[in-house]
């Protein structure tokens, strides 16, 4: 119990630090007033402008010290109020944008994670049981290629081959299509994110499997007369999954990073592409909100990994 309390406390502390730093950086390095009003912010001699400046300052509490503003922002944020978008007309709340776009990114990342796992496990099993043979060496070379391939380059290659030349996959995402075709349109983008990640997973799992396969209990399982397949799946796989699970959790960051690029290339309006857009438009509340959402997701996933860990390994349970 104490262990879990510590884990949760650490996660909260981490999120507080991340948000404080992000908020601080945005407000110190950036110029919030300029972001809200544009050129008007510098026009202090014009009484009309001054009026606008005063109004904005009052509305966004800009005269308060940074710490107070952070406190205000934080209390709003945890209640789901993420401020307003500066860049859109009428300043609609950021939460509207997030509500619309987050599900797409979440679907994409989830789909990619699933694909990566589904590809990596059989791949690792197949190569680990043939370690050192030609097929294993070819696979090792492939993983090297996949890991070295930047995701935007991979996206372009896959799009060119599978969508343009072969015509098997849809070219872009259409937000108004029915759910089933939207999911289908997500397959290629998710695959783009998943492939290099699967290569990383596979290499790790393969190494661990090879170690496990040298254990005494594997010989014991063979001596029981179990088939190769059964030995691999029932006896070798589960004890080999520990670091795999950790890395699956840690790699969520890479998936989210990958989704930013992939959303841009395949024109999926998710939070990744909105992060890029809002940075280009200097719409800080949106940037801040997205960064925080990503950080929260990241920290939560790692907490989840710890829980999963204890399910898989009875030895860490109490």
């Amino acid at each position: 119990m104490r262990f879990w309390l510590q884990r949760v406390a650490m996660a909260v502390l981490l999120l507080l630090s991340v948000s404080a730093l992000t908020f601080g950086a945005m407000n110190i390095l950036g110029d919030p007033l300029f972001n809200i009003l544009g050129p008007v912010a510098g026009d202090v001699n014009n009484p009309d402008s001054v009026k606008l400046i005063e109004k904005a300052k009052a509305e966004f509490d800009l005269d308060e010290p940074l710490v107070v503003r952070y406190g205000l922002w934080l209390s709003d944020f945890v209640r789901g109020d993420m401020g307003v978008q500066f860049s859109s007309d009428g300043q609609p709340p950021v939460s509207d944008l997030i509500k619309e776009r987050l599900p797409r990114t979440a679907t994409l990342v989830l789909l990619a994670q699933l694909m990566a796992i589904v590809i990596a496990i059989p791949w690792a099993l197949a190569t680990a049981s043939r370690a050192g043979k030609l097929s294993d060496r070819i696979s090792t070379m492939n993983t090297f290629f996949l890991v070295a391939m930047p995701n935007f380059a991979l996206a372009i290659i896959l799009k060119f081959v599978l969508s343009i030349k072969l015509g098997w996959m849809p070219l872009t995402y259409v937000a108004n299509d029915p759910l089933s075709s939207r999911l289908w349109q997500m397959v290629l983008p998710a695959l783009t994110i998943a492939l290099p990640v699967a290569a990383v997973f596979q290499r790790l799992l393969r190494t661990d499997l090879i170690t496990t396969l040298q254990q005494d209990f594997i010989l014991m399982a063979r001596a029981k007369g179990l088939s190769r397949r059964r030995v691999l799946f029932r006896h070798a796989l589960r004890p080999s999954l520990f670091s795999f699970i950790t890395v699956v959790g840690l790699n969520t960051g890479a998936l989210i990073g990958g989704s930013i690029v992939v959303e841009t290339i395949f024109r999926i309006p998710g939070i990744g592409s909105s992060l890029v857009e809002s940075v280009l438009r200097e719409d800080f509340p949106v940037v801040l909100a997205i960064v925080m959402i990503v950080a929260v997701a990241f920290v939560l996933i790692n907490l989840l990994v710890d829980i999963l860990y204890s399910i898989i390994d009875p030895r860490v349970r109490r």
């Binding site: 981490l14 945005m26 950036g30």
Partner: peptide, 15 residues
């Protein structure tokens, strides 16, 4: 605790 690309994008937005 940030995906590196997200952190990079955030920082580039400020400079």
């Amino acid at each position: 605790s940030f995906p590196s690309l997200v952190l990079a994008i955030m920082l580039t937005s400020l400079i």
